[in-house]
Design a binder for these strands. Structure first.
Lengths: 335, 335
DNA sequence: TTGTAAGCGTTATCAT
DNA sequence: ATGATAACGCTTACAA
């Protein structure tokens, strides 16, 4: 590994001159500059980013925390983040919280110890205390929230238009004549859960359909829970004629369960689910999905974060970006 | 951020004493040591990894290059890598080659500039020159290859037992009475392509079925190409009664195309595909898959790399780890 | 047992 | 236009 010192020695110059030539900063003798540049190129000189970090107290790395990497939605988000970061000379350090609050806190500490320049995070399902994030913000540290956000932290946020997505899906089901639409969703305290529920309610209201609490099921990550939820829905006297599931794992679980029970989709029950699976059209039946703008979410969040990091004045005007959802109607909800 | 100097000043000690107390190295006065430890804990001292890196010329970071992050197989591999790296105090810097040789080379340079301690790589489909990897090895730099490997680089490698996987899938199809088994595969120069083809051939041989070159189709990443390949296979006088596809994208493409053509699966044509999709059982029809040990591949590769990095003596005995595949028989190949 | 000083690679400041 | 020096945070001979 060639260093500035090596070059200086070889060219009989001082390290500072070489440094300046390399970054063209001060008015250097053009010849000296050319000499240095040529020699550096010949020797494959690369500045040592670690020394740079130590000097400038910025690491040119950003941290990302997602609940799980191997999940179509999040891997697509990471893809978007990586694309932007890569172009702007940052690298991406990934951690997964595995939906655990403790792991999320540890990951944050880890990242700070690693001196990342900023953090992108989609908060875990079991995070209800945000002190670890607030502490970062208190220290003026750049944090951008995406997907699963919270009101408790004042910062940039990037989300999908969950309200609109749920509204559109519900309206679509209503337009096919469905009136008893079950709403299978995630944990009640999550922002996405609440926004989606509002979209659902709002669509019902638009068509004068009474909201029925018993059609809403909140499911944790226990696989048995969703099976129970579905069974109890089907046992209702006025049982549902449609299922709207609000997360990938729920969507797949609904499909698996209903098929196992021998229920005909969409004749008996229509199905629409939030999902970023790329194979929805190949499922049996081809599955109607509300698709989240995963890649764009990653890009947008990364852009906001990097702009913020690189901004000189620390006066930032926070806002929340809402990206459009896409409703793809397929056979599982077509009557 | 508290530094060793801060602690030294506060405690009226020298930085070196604090440093030694912190890592318990030299025989320090137990009381001094306790004092330092307590104060450090109270002040939330974390060693600055950047300073450590600059000093020790190791970054505690490993680089990973995959063709694409948002791909079920690779995201599962990354998951395995991350798990091991995280536990051992390393962080993972991810790059994607997007199947481009140029991007792969640039990613390697980028990683070296970042001073990662080692590299894990699954080579891109269009990499046929390995000089960029050989150069690393020439400098004694730790590189572990996984999934898509090459004979040209002598190092640790982790692969799935592609031969066995293809053999088992072919044998299964034969056992259901199929004799004209089409082999839809990736680019011919890839290690995985060759191994899988050998497994296929070998199974045919075992049952005295002549190998027919015209049943083998190599497909690039052009989506139209696979459609063409399928059409030409179906146009054969003695057209295939089974399709064996050797990569996720091919598998899905086969399914989409055959369904569009109105071909009945498995009655007309049986289908088995290499795939790490977690929803294969929900496809129409439920899809028989050869599943790669993605997570284990990531774990194993990371373990080998970190052991190597941390090894004192540089005499390493390279070997190639072969992990078992799993054949999951579902309706698409059951007669 | 503890302190001093040099060095990892780079750049900013202050000479010259 | 160029050079010397100090500093970023930490470790480690070497000295005391």
């Amino acid at each position: 590994m060639v260093t500035i010192k090596d070059i200086a020695k070889a060219l009989n110059l001082s390290p500072s001159t070489v440094s300046r030539a390399l970054r063209g900063s001060y008015e250097i003798n053009p010849q000296t500059k050319q000499l240095v540049l040529d020699y550096a190129a010949k020797m494959h000189y690369y500045p040592n980013p670690i020394a740079l970090s130590l000097k400038g107290s910025k690491s040119k790395a950003i941290g990302v925390i997602v609940p799980e990497i191997a999940h179509s939605y999040f891997s697509q988000v990471i893809n978007g983040i990586e694309e932007v970061a890569y172009k702007r000379g940052y690298h991406v350090v990934i951690f997964q919280s595995l939906e655990s609050y403790e792991r999320e806190v540890i990951s944050i500490e880890n990242m700070m110890a690693r001196r990342v320049d900023g953090v992108l995070i989609s908060i875990s399902s079991y995070t209800i205390d945000f002190a670890h994030l607030q502490k970062l913000r208190d220290n003026q540290f750049p944090v951008v929230l995406f997907d699963r956000i919270t009101d408790e932290i004042d910062t940039f946020k990037v989300v999908a238009d969950n309200f609109a997505g749920a509204f559109a899906a519900t309206e679509h089901l209503i337009s096919t004549g469905r009136r008893r639409i079950a709403h299978i969703t995630s944990l009640p305290w999550l922002s996405i859960t609440q926004e989606r529920l509002e979209g659902y309610k709002s669509a019902l209201a638009k068509y004068d359909i009474a909201f029925d609490e018993s059609l809403v099921k909140y499911c944790s990550f226990d696989a048995g829970e969703i099976t129970m939820a579905i069974k109890s829905l089907l046992a209702l006297t006025d049982s549902p004629d449609a299922f709207l599931s609000m997360a990938d794992r729920l969507t797949l679980s609904c499909l698996t369960n209903l098929k196992e029970m021998g229920i005909n989709i969409p004749t008996d029950i229509s199905l629409v689910g939030f999902s970023n699976l790329t194979v929805a059209h190949l499922l049996d039946p081809p599955f109607s999905t509300v698709v989240q703008p995963a890649f764009e979410t990653g890009q947008t969040a990364a852009q906001l974060l990097l702009d913020w990091i690189e901004k000189k004045d620390k006066n930032v005007d926070f806002n929340t970006k809402k990206l459009p959802m896409k409703l793809l109607i397929r056979k599982s909800s077509q009557l």
